[in-house]
């Protein structure tokens, strides 16, 4: 170090960098971390993050397909009757059906039974397997779910199993974002999906790497993000436990694993939207997928199994 530098350096001591506040826990079978950059002193961070985690717990209790006591599970046991549901569950189903309609059924929240048949049928907390007797046929579609917005009821026109896996985690992230409204700079990270507000602890926009779908420890892209959610759906995430090969993203039309993409990343104003559209675009593949993302006014990048990358027109502005 050249002499004289020390003078410059001492000036930094006037404003020592503040360490970020970090908290984490396991919800929805995934690690959830909250980072508040430049946190204020006192109890504010603890209270806010506790509230934020409370939303993860609440969404899980309402929307889990695996927990027999969840509101969603009890709804899935009753067909042909209008069931009054909580605002949270109603809104989650309403949104899932809207994405289903927008994607012409490429995204479909009624694939629950198909997922169970693929072996995704164990509660991660208890290890218990879901048993259905009689088991509904796996050929239901989103058109078999009818909502009454006035009465806040959901009617399943036939026996089916709802799955909100591609909506619930995003919804929980978004509700956690609302809980942190006292802060300007923070990150909420839930197993690869996230919302990033303001700037990181170095005062720069958050740097987000996108995992290469075939090289686990390599980043295929780096983004610079502030005030947006980033979600990635990949075929590497959860392998089918039934040994038939494939992964957790179902192509509703065939009942098999979708092969339109290796991974899809979406940058959107809400995590619920990013998560659902990443799944929908994954199913339809790059050609229709980019159209769906642009029509929905979000940005995204689709990597095909042959590693061809296609992106929306505005995606480049997120490149770090």
């Amino acid at each position: 170090m050249p002499p004289g530098n020390q003078l410059v350096n001492t000036s930094r001591r006037i404003r020592p960098p503040r360490e970020p506040y970090l908290a984490s826990g396991v919800f929805m079978d995934t690690l959830v971390s909250i980072e508040i950059a430049a946190p204020p002193a006192g109890d504010l961070c603890r209270k806010a993050t506790s509230r934020a985690f409370g939303w993860f717990r609440e969404v899980e209790q309402r929307c889990s397909r695996f927990d027999p006591d969840s509101e969603l599970a009890s709804l899935s046991r009753t067909a042909g009757v209008a069931i009054p549901v909580s605002d949270l569950l109603f809104r989650a189903i309403e949104f899932a059906l809207a994405v289903a309609q927008e994607s012409d059924g490429a995204f479909d929240p009624t694939v629950g039974r198909t997922l169970e048949r693929h072996g995704f049928d164990r509660n991660y907390r208890t290890g218990e397997r879901i048993v259905r007797d009689p088991a509904p046929l796996p050929d239901a579609t989103y058109r078999d779910v009818v909502l009454d917005p006035t009465a806040r009821t959901v009617t399943l026109l036939r026996p089916l199993v709802l799955d909100l896996g591609a909506v619930a985690k995003g919804l929980a992230i978004d509700l956690a974002v609302e809980s942190l409204h006292d802060f300007h700079d923070y990150a909420i990270y839930a197993g690869g999906d996230m919302y990033l507000a303001g700037r990181n602890s170095e005062g720069a926009p958050w740097q987000v790497g996108i995992r290469h779908p075939r090289l686990p420890e390599t980043l295929i892209e780096t983004l610079s993000v502030s005030g947006a959610a980033v979600c990635t759906s990949g075929d590497y995430e959860r392998v089918r436990p039934d040994g038939e090969g494939g992964h957790h993203i179902v192509e509703p039309a065939t009942g098999g694993s979708a092969h339109g993409a290796a991974s899809v990343t979406v940058v959107a104003p809400t995590a619920m939207l990013a998560d659902a559209l990443a799944t929908a675009a994954f199913v339809v593949g790059p050609e229709r997928g980019i159209g769906l993302l642009e029509r929905s006014r979000v940005e995204g990048m689709i990597v095909t199994p042959s590693l061809t990358v296609t992106e929306t027109a505005g995606f480049a502005r997120h490149r770090g």
Binding site: G192, Q207, R211, V230
Partner: peptide, 11 residues
């Protein structure tokens, strides 16, 4: 290189 990685890669 980054603050967070999208597309869960735990390690």
């Amino acid at each position: 290189p980054v603050n967070y990685v999208s597309g869960a890669t735990d390690s």
